[in-house]
Design a protein around this nucleic acid. Sequence first.
RNA 1: GCCUGGGUGGCGGAAUGGUAGACGCAGAGGACUUAAAAUCCUCUGACCGUAUGGUCGUAGGGGUUCGAGUCCCCUCUUAGGCACCA
Length: 850
Amino acid sequence: MEKPYDFKTIEEKWQEYWREKATFSAENFSAKPRYYALDMFPYPSGAGLHIGHPEGYTASDILSRYLRARGYNVLHPMGWDAFGLPSEQHAIQTGTDPRINTRSNVDTFRRQIQRIGFAIDWSREVNTTDPHYYRWTQWIFLQMFKHNLAFVDKRPIWWCPALKSVLANEEIVDGLSERGRHPVERRPMRQWILRITRYAEKLLEELDGLDWPDSTKRQQIAWIGRSQGAEVDFPIRNSEKCLSVYTTRPDTLLGATYLVVAPEHPVLETITTPEQRDAVSDYQQKTAKKSDLDRTDLAKTKTGVFSGAHAAHPLTGEPLPIWVSDYVLMSYGSGAIMCVPAHDARDFEFAQLFHLPICQVIRPVDTDVDATIPYCERGILCNSGEYDGLTSNAAREAIIDCLEAGGMGRRQVNYRLRDWLFSRQRYWGEPIPIVWVGEGDFAAILRTPGSPFLEFMPSEPVCYEEGGQKFYAVPLSSTALPLQLPPTESYPPSDDGESPLARLDSWVSVWIHPQTGEIRSRADGRPSDEWVPARRETNTMPQWAGSCWYHLRYMSPACETAPVDPKIVDYWRAPDFYIGGAEHAVLHLLYARFWHRFLYDIGVVPTKEPYPRLFHQGIILGEDGEKMSKSRGNVVNPDAIIQSSGADALRLYEMFLGPLEAVKPWDARGIEGIIRFLKRTWKFYSEVSVDGGCDGDETQRLLHESIRKVREDIEGLRFNTAIAQLMILLNHLQKLPRISRFTAESFIQLLAPFAPHICEEIWEQLGHRESIVRAPFPNFDSQWLTRDAVIIVVQVNGKRRGEICVSTDAAESDVLEKARVCGSVLPHLRGREIVKEVHVPHRIVNFVVH
RNA sequence: GCCUGGGUGGCGGAAUGGUAGACGCAGAGGACUUAAAAUCCUCUGACCGUAUGGUCGUAGGGGUUCGAGUCCCCUCUUAGGCACCA
C-alpha cells in the first residue's frame, strides 16, 4: 500500500530530530578537515522572512551538507543583525521598548528559518543587540580609540530632518536618504569618526588576493579611489601664504591659467579683495543652501565668482587669477585646484564660460588622433619651455623633481575614501563606552597610575570645545563592559538631533572615580572629593558596527575573555565561503574588512582578511519581472510556499530557477515541476524493489556520470544543472522494476543536500537507523565513465550530414573511412573533391569539399 | 558621461570553439476515469515538404576559423555600479 507524500509530517519530523540530536553542531577542534560556510546574517524585520533570504541560505546549506558528507567538520551558523532603524521607528511610533519588538522578530525569523531545514548549529546563534555580544563590539571600538583610530569632530554632516538622523555618506543615494528617500541637508554636529582612511592602502592591497566577484572588487577599488599625483604650492600675491592644490597631471602644469577654490575654503577669508567681497559672500551663501544633489548635478552649467586675488605660477611666476566655484569640493584633496582648460573638460567648460585664457601644452603622440581642445589624454609636451618634447610620463617626473627641489611641491597619493562617520543620534544601537570630563579632571586621570580609565587611553587625547570649555574623552575600562543601553520611555530624538539617551540625565550625568574606575549617577550626590564629574557619550554606533565582526563571534559565542577565543580562531581561521547580496559590495564588506584587519594588526585574529571567498546570489524578482515590493503586490511569501509545497520543494525550486548568481524571476507554475519530481521520487521508492542484484550497464553508467556531475556542480555552485541531472537520473530509474541497493542509496544521497527531509525519510525506509547526514557521500567509479563506442557527428563544410558509431579506440583512418561511406553523408561528397578532413576524436568529423 | 555584467524557443534556462535548445514550465494529442483532478505515454524553435529530407535560426552588422551562442571589432538594447574626486 502506497503512502502519499506527506511533506508536512516528514519535514517537521526530521527538523525535530535534527534539533534534538544537535545533528549539525560543529566541533571546535577536530582532526577532520574544517569548513566554515557563512551567510550574511539577516536584519530581522517585522515583515518576516523574504523569498530572497532562503536563496543564499539554501546554497550555503547544500554546500555545508555536501562537505559534511565528504567528511568535513562544518561550521554553518546563523544570527541576527538586530540593531537598526526600523525597530527604532517602531519604538517611536508605538512607545514600546525595541527589545520587545526585536525579540519577537527574531523568534519569527528563527522559526521560519528552522522550518526550511537548514543544517545550522543553533548553539552558536548570535544577536548583535545582546549585551554579551555588544560588550565586544564596544571593546573593539575602545581598541580603535586606544590606537587613535576614533576621534570626534564638529563637522558638517548629513542630517535628514524626516528621519531625525545623521547619515553616513554611504547612506545618501542621489542626494536622498537611502532609507525612505527623504531629502537631506548639511548640518555641523559633533560626531565620532573612525579613521578608515588610514587603512585605505591596506584595504586596497589585500583585495588582490581575494576570491571575490570581479565587479565587487572593482567597486571597492573605485570606492577607495587611490590616485597618484602631486601637491603644488602657488604663492599668493601680496601674502606670505601659498595655495596648495592637488593634481594628477603635473605634466600639464605649464598649461595652468587660473586656480579655483571651493566656496568653503578658509583662504577666501583673507585673500578676497574688498571689491569682490560681496560677490564672494553672496556666492558662498548660495552654495551653502544648495543640496548636494544640485551641486553635483553634471547637467548644470558651472557657476563661480572671481576672488580678486592672484597667485604666482610656481615655475613661471606668472600671475594666475583665483576663482571660487562649487565644482571644486572642499572634502577632496586640498579644496583647491589648478586649472588647465586645454586638457580638462571641466576646466575647459569653466574657462569658456568666464572667458579665461586657454593654453595648450600637450599634443597627441599620434598625429592622426583628434587633438581637439580639451584634449585630456597623455601625449607630448609643447609650450612648456625646457619640457617641450617630453612625454607626459617623463615630464611628470621632471616637473615634480623640479618642484621638490624648489620646495614648491611634492609627490602625493590621494584617496577618494572618506573617514567613517560612526555615531548616530539614536537609541537602538550600541552605546559608545566613553565619558567626557573637563580639562583638569582629565589631567588628574592621566596622573593616576593604574587607573582603569587608562586601559584604552590613546596617545593623542580626543577632545572637543563647547562654550569655551574643553571636554576630554575618557574610555571605560574593559571591566565596565558591556555598557548597557539604559531603559527609557521616550524614543524620538530631540528636534536639534540629540540622541534620546541625552534626555536620561540620571544616566548621562555621573561621578567617576579615577582610581577605582567606578561610575555612579550624579543624582545620588558626590560620594567624596576623589570623584570627578563626567558626562556620558549619548551617541550610539551605526548598524554596521555589529556586522563587522560577527563572523568571529560564531566561533566562540560564549567566550567571556575576548571577542573570539584565540585558540578557536586559530582553528577556524576565517569563513571559507561567504554568501550574500551584492548590495553590500562596498559598505558592509569594506567596514568588516577594516575591523577585521585592525583586529589582525592588534593580534586578535590570525588572518588579514575576513572573507577570502565571497559569492553574491542574484536577487529573485516577482512574477512580473520586477523587484518584489509590497507596493507592487508581487511579493512571494516563503511561508506560503512551505505550507502548500513543502520546504524541500522551496529549496529545490529556488536552486532550480537558474544560475545562483543570476537575477531571475519567480514563476509560481514552475514549482509544479519540482513538486512532481519529489512526488515521483517518493512513489518510485515505495514501489521499486531494491535488491542485492546488479544494474544494467546503462544504469550504472548514468548513475556514475550523475555522481560525478552532482559533485562537480555542487562544488562549482551550479545547483540548477545538478538538479537537472538528478531529474535525468530519476527519469531513467523510474522505468526499472528493480534497482541495486547501491543505486537506490546513491540517488537519495545525491539528492539529500538539496531536499534533506524527504531523503532522511526514504533513507530510514531503506533500513537505516542513523541519519543520512552521517553517511559518506557516494563516489563514482571511473570505469563507468568511459564507453566502448561513441557517436560521432559527420559534417560536410561545417553542416551536419549524419552520424556514425565508432569504438572509442578506433584508428583515425577507420573513423574517416566510416564517415566517408556513411549513407546520409555520401550524397554530399559525390562528385566533389575533399580538400581537408578534420577529425576531433570522440566528437566530430568534418569534410571540407569544393 | 565612465566602468561592469547580460541579450538563446511561448517562459525559466542548458551547451570544455565541435549534434544549439539538456532539464523544467506552458501548450497539443492520447491512455486511465461515468467525469474531473492526479498520474502515465507521445509531440512541441521557425519555414517548406505526405515523407526520407531541406532551408533558416542564439539582439543586429562585419571578421577570425574546417567549424562560432562561445573568440575579435562596430552598433543597438537591458541590468547594476560610479558620477565635477582635480
